[in-house]
Simulated scan of single mutants.
Amino acid sequence: MWAGKVISEATKDIAVVQQAAQNVLLVDTIIRSGEEEGSSHHATVENSADHLCCYIRAMVRGEHLLSSFTREALQKKLDPNFGEPERTSILALLYTPGDAETHLSPKLWCGLVNGKVRVFDGIMWTLEKEFVQAKKSLSCLTAVGRKQVWVGSYEICIIETETIQSKRILSDHGEFVIDIIAVDDSRYVYSASVNGVIIRWYVKGLTVANRIALDMSAGETLRSLQHAQGYLWCGVWKGIWKINKSGEILAKLSFDIPRSAVSVNPVEMECFHIMENGQIWAGCRRDGTIVVMDTKNGGKIMGEPIKLEAKGISIMVKLKNRMWIGTKSGIMYVVDIETRAKIKDLKAHYDAVRALCCADDRYVISGAGSSDGKIIIWSPTDSRSASGRFLLE
């Protein structure tokens, strides 16, 4: 119990105390029941009890010893898997700011690999009782206006934000939906599936405005979709395709990292982010390398790659003049966009970072794979400079 309290205070995770209290009761039950010689675990009662003392082992591993930058940035840990029969990965996060006119409170939406959408109150960070079960698994959560959240799965599930209930199911894709983006003040929504089908939806009537079928005969798989500069940008393993609203491919930007810069083969792109100035930050699937591509110059790589200590780059989100980068090693990196210098690394996840979102400009929120299965709320505000000095000194 003491070990759980130490880790809970260090990591700002109240669920650890609750779990430690349950473990204490279980240990007591195992020891008492094992005292009888006829019990099945009489000879191994100490090993059985020790197995439940997971927070003592966590202290031995030093999980309560966080770096100064991590301690200052970490605001709170949440556990969307609490009470679940097994821990699952967090694949999508979405913060909705609420609406004062309709008295709708802010919410944090969390999509789990088992297809369940859990919701936290965005003020007290308490877990709501209501949840929505999507079909099998899910890929993304997208706010459409203030009244709807669209969930990408083997179909599109539309949730009402006020009631946290499924309103409508759209099954037009027929394949797994990997991305959903709202455009034109949520008048239209684009959805994309792995087989290269992109559908433009008219939100008011939930009707199909037009349908694009990309040629994927070369064996490519559509991985992600973004909208910028009036075009659609499609992420595949080998790079990014720029297409217009009619589906015409205008350019193919290759993810050409010099072989000398990476230690893996083949070199594949996991994620990308388009900047307002036309630059694209693209992260490597199995290596901690990020390149910056120039869309105004045919996708040519600008300058030297950004090298991070990681097994791969999983996701990126921009906040002001910084890029927050989640890695497959579980480390969060914060990089200055202009200088490309690493500002800090944050180590509090124990599995790959799978999801990222921003809560306005107040927080960056991350979610991790099943070995961790936790959400962390980070403060983007600096109390120290890159040299380690306090900013008010």
Rank of each mutant, 00 (worst) to 15 (best):
residue 305 P to C: 11
residue 305 P to I: 10
residue 305 P to M: 06
residue 305 P to A: 07
residue 305 P to Y: 07
residue 306 I to F: 08
residue 306 I to V: 13
residue 306 I to N: 02
residue 306 I to K: 02
residue 307 K to N: 11
residue 307 K to W: 04
residue 307 K to A: 05
residue 307 K to G: 03
residue 307 K to I: 13
residue 308 L to N: 00
residue 308 L to I: 05
residue 308 L to G: 01
residue 308 L to K: 00
residue 308 L to S: 01
residue 308 L to A: 08
residue 309 E to T: 09
residue 309 E to M: 11
residue 309 E to N: 14
residue 310 A to V: 13
residue 310 A to T: 05
residue 310 A to I: 11
residue 310 A to D: 08
residue 310 A to L: 09
residue 310 A to S: 15
residue 311 K to G: 15
residue 311 K to T: 15
residue 311 K to S: 15
residue 311 K to R: 14
residue 311 K to V: 05
residue 311 K to L: 11
residue 311 K to D: 12
residue 311 K to P: 05
residue 311 K to C: 07
residue 312 G to C: 10
residue 312 G to S: 12
residue 312 G to A: 07
residue 312 G to Q: 09
residue 312 G to M: 14
residue 313 I to H: 04
residue 313 I to A: 02
residue 313 I to S: 03
residue 313 I to W: 03
residue 314 S to Q: 14
residue 314 S to F: 03
residue 314 S to H: 04
residue 314 S to E: 04
residue 314 S to N: 10
residue 315 I to S: 10
residue 315 I to R: 15
residue 315 I to P: 01
residue 315 I to W: 02
residue 316 M to W: 06
residue 316 M to F: 12
residue 317 V to P: 00
residue 317 V to I: 15
residue 317 V to Y: 03
residue 317 V to K: 15
residue 318 K to I: 14
residue 318 K to V: 12
residue 318 K to P: 08
residue 318 K to S: 04
residue 318 K to A: 13
residue 318 K to Y: 06
residue 318 K to G: 06
residue 319 L to R: 11
residue 319 L to W: 08
residue 319 L to H: 11
residue 320 K to G: 00
residue 320 K to M: 13
residue 320 K to Y: 05
residue 320 K to L: 13
residue 320 K to W: 08
residue 320 K to V: 01
residue 321 N to S: 02
residue 321 N to G: 14
residue 321 N to D: 15
residue 322 R to W: 12
residue 322 R to V: 03
residue 322 R to E: 10
residue 323 M to F: 04
residue 323 M to G: 07
residue 323 M to K: 02
residue 324 W to M: 02
residue 325 I to C: 08
residue 325 I to D: 00
residue 326 G to H: 04
residue 326 G to F: 04
residue 326 G to M: 07
residue 326 G to E: 02
residue 327 T to A: 14
residue 327 T to F: 06
residue 327 T to Q: 10
residue 328 K to T: 04
residue 328 K to M: 09
residue 328 K to Q: 06
residue 328 K to H: 08
residue 328 K to P: 02
residue 329 S to Q: 09
residue 329 S to I: 11
residue 329 S to E: 11
residue 329 S to L: 12
residue 329 S to K: 03
residue 329 S to A: 10
residue 329 S to F: 09
residue 330 G to R: 09
residue 330 G to W: 03
residue 330 G to Q: 04
residue 330 G to M: 08
residue 330 G to D: 09
residue 331 I to N: 04
residue 331 I to D: 04
residue 331 I to W: 06
residue 331 I to Q: 06
residue 331 I to Y: 03
residue 331 I to E: 06
residue 332 M to D: 03
residue 332 M to G: 07
residue 332 M to Y: 01
residue 333 Y to N: 09
residue 333 Y to W: 08
residue 333 Y to G: 01
residue 333 Y to P: 00
residue 333 Y to M: 05
residue 334 V to E: 14
residue 334 V to S: 12
residue 334 V to H: 13
residue 334 V to Q: 14
residue 334 V to P: 06
residue 334 V to N: 11
